[in-house]
Design a protein around this nucleic acid. Structure first.
Lengths: 208, 208
DNA sequence: TATTATACCATACAAATGTATGGTATTTAT
DNA sequence: ATAAATACCATACATTTGTATGGTATAATA
């Protein structure tokens, strides 16, 4: 039997992976059917059966939401990288994904959070290096001392956030860069989100 | 109304958090009842109702496994750190947890994987620093070039894994340390697991 | 041509799941 | 002392969910 998945089966498997790895919870037949516009759960059911037969998933019978992925190699899930950020030399954020990285299954993305790749060594004093992926959560209020991604004049920076009495300071880790004081000069100033973590894949060696 | 949870409610909420954050999937009423030895789902149901009334969770009605945590501050979940590892200066692995760190919700642990804290700067050439948490997956076969945690004479090391024709080499990132050649001299040699990722919390600043 | 796999639909059914309601006993306020 | 909250139990019921079965249509294959 061919182990190849058909186009639709592949789409469904991708949806499963996306839900399980991204949301952390496998979808029900009804949810999957709804997502693909099927009027009937049985359609999904049969696709899952086919996918299971080809060895890509395993289902615990009779239990809801218990699809398991059996892809030993699939410990990494493709995720869109939305842009690049740096401190010191701000770069523009791109509207669409600039790249896709393989995020490991350990890294579950909180709702609405996204990934940015760090470019350059200007954050090296914060132990963040060229190529590292920062996970940005836009749903959290920044607290003093936390790293934030902020927009200044259509460019993105990663800096530490400090709210003072009358102003906001964005402090660079590298003492060569002086703190940015946010006042009326920056009408377009915007906090994109806070950096909740740094992930570095151990797969490939990066250039020092 | 008091927002305080009772002992049992607290235990149930802890179970919910543990399941949602650790396993990635909220339990059903039946599962929860079974876990606490209740003969009846209604008992759990009423506890959840009380917990929801106090504002700690939110439930999407009629849907299975849809308990949501509403604790804005609870974006970090305690996780046991099983030991400390270093390259160059091997340290013993402790049988029990030596510490607990606050792992963010973005980091979902794969089944059976565990955390080790890196001690010392001997891995700094691999951009892993003192205090970083490495996530170790014991269920993967090491491939050449990957970082592995290995046991040598009851001590743990983190090194790159290379399988040669007749032997296994454990290579240090720091050229000062020569590769360890695994042969009959190491009867207790054992690969604990491979390092699937490095996580560094951005909450606190570490000493350089 | 005949056969098989694919991709949908509809219907039916058992088990799982969430929910509602009522009951008992104990503890904790008022 | 009375009322309210807590902590369980049991039963009943509507949906949800997974599963089984049969049907139609199309494309790929032998």
């Amino acid at each position: 039997m061919s182990k190849e998945l058909t186009k639709i089966q592949k789409k469904i498997l991708e949806y499963l992976i996306d839900q399980i790895k991204g949301k952390g919870i496998p979808p029900t037949l009804a949810e999957t059917a709804n997502h693909f516009g099927y009027r009937n759960r049985a359609t999904v059911q049969q696709h899952l059966k086919a996918i299971e037969k080809k060895g890509y998933i395993k289902k615990n019978p009779k239990l809801s939401r218990w699809i398991e992925l059996t892809l030993e190699d699939k410990f990494f899930v493709p995720r869109a990288v939305l842009g690049e950020v740096a401190a010191g030399n701000p770069l523009t954020i791109y509207p669409d994904a600039i790249d896709t990285i393989e995020l490991p299954t350990i890294a579950r993305m909180p709702k609405d959070s996204f990934l940015l790749r760090v470019k350059g060594d200007s954050l090296k004093d914060a132990y963040i290096f060229n190529g590292d992926i920062v996970i940005v959560n836009p749903n959290l209020e920044p607290k003093n001392g936390q790293f934030v991604v902020a927009i200044l004049d259509d460019a993105a920076v990663v800096k530490r956030f400090y709210k003072r009495r009358s102003q906001i300071e964005l402090v660079s880790e590298n003492p060569e860069y002086k703190p940015i004081i946010i006042d009326k000069k920056y009408p377009s100033f915007n906090i994109v989100g806070i950096v909740v973590g740094v992930y570095r894949s151990m797969e490939k060696r990066r250039a020092g």
